[in-house]
């Protein structure tokens, strides 16, 4: 295995773990089926990109058109991406999370995901449309030898992953996390014991948005590119598959799911020669397999590989 491949794998793993931890907070813990999760990642990616890129009048960049182009130094673009993800969660949550029954929430979010992609694809002057943004500057690239930069980026990703994991574990293991789980189990009863479900959902939706935005910033800084084709709505379904397989409500499960589904699965299938069958057959079958994985797990093992832990308190009778 060469080091380029290993670096690539580690960075993708970090980004997917971050995303799955965030989705687990929303979906696994709080019960919000955020089918537009990938939109929040995309907002973070676009924001980080236009904050770090030079204006679109700059010589090498004039083949694309976009807003912003502020050329801000690292880590401002990543922070900006995270904030943008959180900010987007406010209006979306306001429309979706207040009055609608949970299954309608899911559908509204799914539709939002499809529409957001359509709009960005067609509105070219905003973020360069379907072609997307290229030549996104890699953070602090000029401080490193290109040969060692990959290791640096792995380190950066690892720090962010650790930070997000800390946040996720603190939330899940806190009384606040318990309140979120109670709301997931029975919203009306949670209201009857003084919990405000709208406020609870909004906070965790924003937290998830911030983390998703950060994951987008990390990803775009590495692949130095971002376009509508990388955030189509099925990308969210992969993350759902990961959380369902790993174990809803369990942080370690989310990490495991991220390693098994988006990372492991994609890596394994890369080795299938693409010359088999008509063009597009292998990727299409990958999607079919993702669908089967979701349905199979929901049928045979809905709690996932690592189920949500039952909490036993100190001093409990045996």
């Amino acid at each position: 295995m060469n080091s380029y491949y290993a670096i690539n794998l580690l960075i993708y793993a970090g980004v997917d773990i971050i995303a799955c931890l965030a989705l687990n907070l929303q979906f696994g813990v709080a019960g919000i089926v955020n089918f537009s999760f990938i939109v929040f990642q995309a907002v973070g990616a676009y924001t980080a990109a236009v904050l770090s890129m030079p204006p679109d009048t700059a010589p090498d960049y004039s083949f694309q058109i976009y807003v912003g182009g502020l050329q801000l130094p690292f880590p401002i673009p990543w922070i900006g991406g995270a904030i943008a993800g959180g900010l987007l969660a406010v209006p979306v949550g306001f429309v979706v999370l207040r009055k609608l029954r949970s299954d309608y929430q899911a559908i509204a979010l799914l539709v939002l995901s499809v529409i957001a992609n359509t709009v960005i694809t067609n509105a070219r002057p905003f973020l360069n449309g379907a072609a997307g943004l290229a030549l996104v500057p890699a953070p602090l690239a000029d401080l490193f030898d290109p040969a060692t930069y990959g290791y640096f980026y792995v380190g950066l990703t690892a720090i962010c992953t650790a930070l997000v994991a800390l946040v996720a574990f603190r939330i899940v293991n806190s009384p606040y996390g318990r309140t979120l789980r109670a709301m997931r189990e029975h919203e009306v009863a949670a209201t009857a014991i003084g919990k405000n479900p709208v406020a609870l959902k909004m906070t965790i939706f924003i937290v998830g948005g911030v983390i998703a935005g950060l994951s987008g910033g990390i990803l775009t800084g590495y692949i130095t590119f971002w376009a509508p084709s990388v955030w189509l709505y099925p990308e969210t379904i992969i993350l759902f598959a990961a959380v369902i397989v790993g174990g809803r409500g369990n942080n370690l499960g989310a990490v495991l799911g991220a390693l098994l589904v988006p990372v492991g699965f994609e890596e394994v299938t890369r080795f299938i020669p693409s010359s088999i069958g008509p063009p597009g057959l292998i990727p299409a079958l990958q999607w079919v397999a993702i669908g089967l994985l979701i349905i199979g797990f929901l049928w045979f093992r809905p709690e996932g590989v690592r189920p949500e832990p039952r909490r036993v308190f100190e001093g409990a009778p045996d």
Partner: peptide
Amino acid sequence: LGMVIVSLAISLMMAN
């Protein structure tokens, strides 16, 4: 909610 996820998975599988 589970049913919505199932039907979305079916939709993805059918398309592909």
